[in-house]
Design a protein around this nucleic acid. Structure first.
Ligand SMILES: O=c1ccn([C@H]2C[C@H](O)[C@@H](COP(=O)(O)OP(=O)(O)OP(=O)(O)O)O2)c(=O)[nH]1
Ligand SMILES: [Mg+2]
Length: 1038
DNA sequence: CGTCAGTTGAA
DNA sequence: TTCAAC
DNA sequence: GACG
């Protein structure tokens, strides 16, 4: 029985049940895990600073006393505000003296508490690495459970007194925390000054007020005091204080609305009004359906129904709002300009010819981002695995080759080519070019894998000094900034690439091209130059590694410090930055208000090319370090490693080709039409969200801001609805809003709106309604009674939609109810902390404070190891004026053979001691890994509010991907990843991979891990994806 | 009509 | 596994 | 909710 069927059946069952039973049914259905699973009784737990710490924590420290005075949040718009120099931090002199590596793993932090040691100690002795990840994890949990119970049980249970729990104060102050806003909210949210409050009658009143309102809210919150760690023994609810109310701008707006519409039963995820709610609780859904109509019937949901959608829904008995699409209605079918590409069946040969032809003419003019002509002079024959059809992967790769100055030779002609690039299987390849054996290929022609091309992305150009000869390697002089100055004459530079033998496609031909001929080939022809700039990567000796059979593995080429140095503004004249081998930890400013000059939207659009996907190389053998990282533990053990199964690779390719129809609108010719004289289609139209820079032009008021605000509001309502459909709907709104935000002119018609990519007919209708009436009725429709309550619950860290609805269904309506455990609900450890510091956590942090805390953290870390690379990420790096939390990335160059292993443990210990970190929310699975995640609370000093802080440590080699990921924003990331997918790649925080195959029936499961394509620098990854370089502040999409 | 990012940690 | 979070 |  499919999940869906089950779902329907269940809903049906519910529908037929008497109201009273529903609650029970639902409860029963969930109970299984909800209850039994806890190791200790949460009700008897108190969350306290000291107790909530972990292993490495020093039990003695105590910094207590908190005055939860924090001001109420005010949401700032996500406008980058580069005003304040984004990141000037960096370059903090590293304090010497840190002892590098920590010693053995044995010093597992003792789980402080004594008896725990007794119980666990023995186990701990054994080296964790002896255990499978699974086991280690399991064991760790055991330890923690013990630890937890030990610590917790020592505390008195925190129950609110009846009196307290009754207070309706919270209800009154119930304001919506931005909760969801964390991810879904958009940047442009206005400063949010409104707060909604609820009067005793349970009606919402829109109290939109200026900042101050926030303050006034304070009076409602019960706050403070109790939160002091020590004192909230049994009596005062250990968690009440901080409840503050950051108002959620988006929702509070039209608060008023409360029409309690009649509702139809039926609810998507089984949320049920177990209790006739004070605020009418509607099981919307059907309602939603009707709401599909942009213009809901005045009379109310059920009444006059615009036929279509309606009928169906009703007949379905309101079981679930399933895609009311069935009823297609196409009103004003507009001209859809967005329809893209015609996929053409073209052969690689034709495509290559076309590219070569087209390239010469048009390409040159609109040079786009960082296309370094590192393939200049190279005459390449590319074989993607199929001579009859150039799939998206092949096409994109060909585009890349061309874009970077390479000459694409359509067919295999030993006399014409200097390189053969292919990831195909040896036999397949030979058959394709009509040869019997590899040795039939002229020795001077190297056969390399795609990774060879990739290797050129991040190499810094070197000045081709007089002596053209000596170029070998050693003396490559980093050009860095000089380069930027005179971008024009790149004839002067040379773009070193990885050595061919490092990327040999066939092991039997590893030496091909290494002979003098190889050099000859390299030397010859240098022309199609183009200018290019930006890459100021500094490179030190690349990993010129060892000879043939050796993998350069470790030698790491440090070459890419790029990210960190990237864009070093041309301080002109400045000396070239040479990187001492190791890497500059000097994080250069990640976010200088760059003047990404060039790229007008148009040029960008024009220059856009899409790239092809890789085919997983049937790499028979990673000639070059695959990933020597021991690090990544696969979550699902069922990953059959690929690189060994060529077939799998081909499947990957096939899948990619099949799934990827796309995005390439079509050949390069497409390029030529972008600027149809004056027609301003510049911006919009096609492409992924990540393709165009965002943030930049946003400062100027958006001509459709009012529309955006409304849609934003509607989106935030959908965000608190339980169904899956709403979840996706939110995604849809996000995209539509992002598109609208960058749309340059005021929208005048439905047709114009619907022509925007990301905006469909539904949204277009809504847009027009807003433009014409200034209102959007659907909003009131979605604003059901549960919304505010749910939103307030979501403000508790650790509480998501499911939990929020569950509590709601258990009768909880206010934070007081939660604190009182009304309905017998249980809170996880995280949730307890979340409730306790509700206010603090929901208050955004002023940029300055983020920096202050970050600096302390950084200083402490450098004390542990001066070579650590520490950078602040997230919204801070993007230049936001206030941040939801503090995100810190930690890694360390490995050039000296050391790593940051064990650093986090020590760092946390120290920070705990200093009183900076006060509680932990989530600990890494294994502190000895190189890749760790930590989440906790911290504060600037004892008188400051608590702040959320996250640490992410990654292997040095993953830094590029990690920077990309951690810088976000989330919408940008998803877009980027989506694009990567469409291109046949898979992008995650560790790198860009090709050939990843997932289990179609469970996408979380990888059948093939794929092959790492890039991970060391952001630029390299973006480049391969054909996404123009974007400074952090330009990556704002939300 | 399927897809929409990809991952870790708590329980 | 599911939920929550990044 | 949009798109292929
Ligand atoms: O669903 C998510 C959430 C976050 N991220 C990445 C991007 C984001 O920038 C970074 C840090 O996450 P965080 O939640 O801290 O968001 P932020 O961008 O830093 O904003 P905020 O100011 O709310 O902290 O992690 C994702 O890739 N996916
Ligand atoms: Mg953040």
């Amino acid at each position: 029985m499919s999940e869906l069927e089950f779902y329907f059946a269940e809903q049906q069952a519910i529908m037929n049940m008497p109201e009273e039973d529903i609650t029970d049914y639902l409860a029963r259905r969930r109970r299984s895990r909800a209850d039994g699973s806890y190791t200790f009784d949460p009700d008897s737990v108190i969350v306290d600073n000291d107790t909530s710490t972990l292993s490495y924590a020093n039990p003695s420290t105590s910094h207590r006393r908190t005055t939860s005075v924090s001001g109420v949040s005010k949401h700032h718009s996500e406008t980058p505000q580069h005003a304040e120099t984004p990141q000037e931090h960096s370059r903090t002199p590293q304090e010497p003296g840190g002892l590098p590596q920590e010693c053995s793993p044995v010093n597992q932090p003792s789980h402080a508490v004594a008896h725990v040691d007794a119980l666990v100690g023995g186990k701990r002795q054994t080296n964790k690495h002896d255990l499978s990840p699974r086991m280690r994890k399991k064991r760790r949990r055991e330890e923690e459970a013990i630890n937890a119970s030990a610590d917790f049980t020592s505390q008195a249970p925190p129950h609110l007194t009846a009196a307290e729990s009754n207070r309706s104060s919270w209800e009154g102050s119930l304001s919506v925390p931005s909760a969801r806003s964390i991810h879904s909210v958009s940047p442009c949210e206005q400063p949010a000054l409104s707060c909604a409050s609820e009067d005793s009658a349970g009606m919402l009143v829109d109290t939109r007020q200026p900042d101050v309102s926030a303050e006034s809210n304070a009076e409602y919150s019960i706050s403070t005091v109790a939160q002091t760690p020590y004192h909230e023994p049994a009596a005062g609810s250990s968690e009440n204080c901080n409840i503050a109310l950051p108002a959620d701008p988006s929702t509070s707006h039209h608060a008023q609305g409360k029409q309690s519409a009649p509702d139809l039963p039926e609810t998507p995820r089984g949320k049920e009004p177990a209790i006739p709610p004070p605020l009418a609780y509607h099981r919307r859904s059907t309602v939603a359906d009707c709401s599909n109509i942009t213009t809901p019937p005045r009379s109310g949901p059920g009444a006059s129904v615009p036929e279509t959608a309606r009928a169906k829904t009703l007949s379905t008995t309101g079981v679930r709002r399933n895609n009311g699409n069935a009823t297609k209605r196409v009103t004003t079918k507009a001209v859809k300009t967005k329809g893209k590409g015609k996929k053409e069946l073209i052969t690689p040969l034709e495509y290559a010819e076309r590219l070569q032809a087209g390239f010469s003419e048009q390409a040159v003019k609109k040079k786009k981002h960082s296309d370094k002509p590192f393939l200049k002079g190279k005459r390449i024959f590319y074989y993607g695995g199929d001579l009859n059809y150039a799939g998206p992967q092949t096409r994109n790769r060909m585009d890349i080759i061309t874009r970077h100055g390479g000459t694409l030779v359509p067919k295999y002609d030993p006399a014409e080519i200097s390189h053969i690039v292919t990831d195909a299987d040896e036999r397949v390849f030979l058959r394709a070019i009509g040869l019997k054996k590899l040795s039939d290929i002229p020795q001077h022609i190297p056969t390399v894998k795609w990774s060879w091309v990739v290797s050129g992305f991040d190499r810094a150009p070197v000045r081709r000094s007089a002596e053209a000869s000596g170029k070998g390697k050693a003396r490559e002089k980093a050009v860095g900034q000089d380069l930027m100055s005179n971008v024009e004459d790149d004839e002067e530079y040379e773009y070193p690439m990885g050595h061919e033998f490092e990327h040999a496609a066939f092991k039997d031909r590893i030496d091909a091209g290494r002979t003098p001929w190889g050099e000859v080939a390299k030397l010859r022809a240098e022309k199609g130059a183009k200018k290019d700039q930006s890459t100021s990567k500094v490179r030190s000796g690349t990993g010129q590694c060892a000879g043939p059979g050796l993998q350069d593995h470790s030698a790491e080429d440090i070459s890419n410090i790029s990210d960190f140095t990237q864009d070093i503004e041309p301080p002109r004249g400045a000396a070239t930055i040479t990187v001492p081998e190791g890497l500059p930890s000097p994080p250069s400013s990640p976010d200088q208000p760059r003047l990404h000059s060039a790229h007008t939207l148009v040029s960008e659009d024009a220059a856009r090319t899409t790239h092809t996907a890789p085919q997983a190389a049937p790499s028979r053998e990673p000639i070059r370090d695959g990933e020597s990282h021991a690090g990544h533990k696969a979550r699902s053990a069922s990953v059959m490693n690929s690189s060994t199964d060529p077939l799998a690779e081909f499947y990957a390719t096939a899948r990619a080709e099949r799934d990827a129809e796309m995005f390439k609108v079509d050949g390069p010719d497409n390029e030529s039409m972008p600027v149809p004289n004056g027609v301003r289609r510049a911006v919009v139209q096609k492409g992924f969200l990540c393709d165009d820079k965002g943030g930049a032009q946003r400062l100027a008021a958006c001509p459709n801001q009012d529309v955006i605000d409304k849609l934003q509001e509607l989106k935030s309502l959908h965000a608190v609805k339980p169904s899956k459909d709403d979840e996706w709907r939110v995604l849809g709104y996000n995209k539509a809003i992002a598109a609208l935000r960058k749309y340059p002119t005021r929208i005048k018609s439905y047709e114009e709106a619907v022509a925007i990519r990301g905006v469909g007919s539904k949204t277009a209708q809504k847009i027009m309604e807003i433009i014409e009436t200034g209102e959007l009725r659907r909003i009131e429709h979605e604003r059901t009674g549960d919304v505010e309550v749910i939103q307030s619950f979501l403000g508790i860290y650790g509480v998501g939609l499911d939990t929020a609805f569950k509590w709601y269904n258990n009768g909880c309506r206010t934070l007081d109810d939660i604190a009182a455990r009304k309905g017998g609900i249980k809170l996880s450890t995280e949730q307890k902390i979340g409730l306790k510091y509700y206010k603090d956590i929901n208050t955004r942090i002023p940029r300055a404070e983020v920096e202050e805390i970050y600096n302390k953290v950084k200083a402490t870390a450098l004390t542990i190891d001066p070579k650590l690379f520490i950078e602040i990420m997230g919204s801070f790096r993007r230049g936001k004026a206030d941040c939801g939390d503090i995100d810190v990335l930690i890694t360390r160059p490995t050039d000296d053979g050391k790593t940051h292993q064990g650093v986090l443990r020590r760092l946390l210990r120290e920070l705990h001691q200093q009183g900076i970190i006060t509680e932990d929310l989530c600990l890494p699975e294994d502190f000895d890994d190189l890749e760790l995640v930590y989440r906790g609370l911290c504060r600037k000093d004892a008188n400051s509010p608590r702040r959320r802080i996250d640490f992410l440590t990654v292997p040095w080699k993953s830094r590029g991907a990690a920077l990309l990921y951690y810088t976000g924003d989330d919408i940008f990331n998803r877009s980027l990843r989506l694009k990567a997918n469409k291109m046949g790649y898979s992008l995650n925080q560790r790198g860009l991979y090709a050939g990843v195959i997932r289990n179609p029936s469970d996408k979380r499961q990888k059948l093939d891990n794929g092959q790492l394509i890039a991970s060391e620098s952001e630029r390299e990854i973006l480049d391969i994806l054909g996404v123009p370089w974007q400074e952090p502040h330009e990556r704002v999409r939300g």
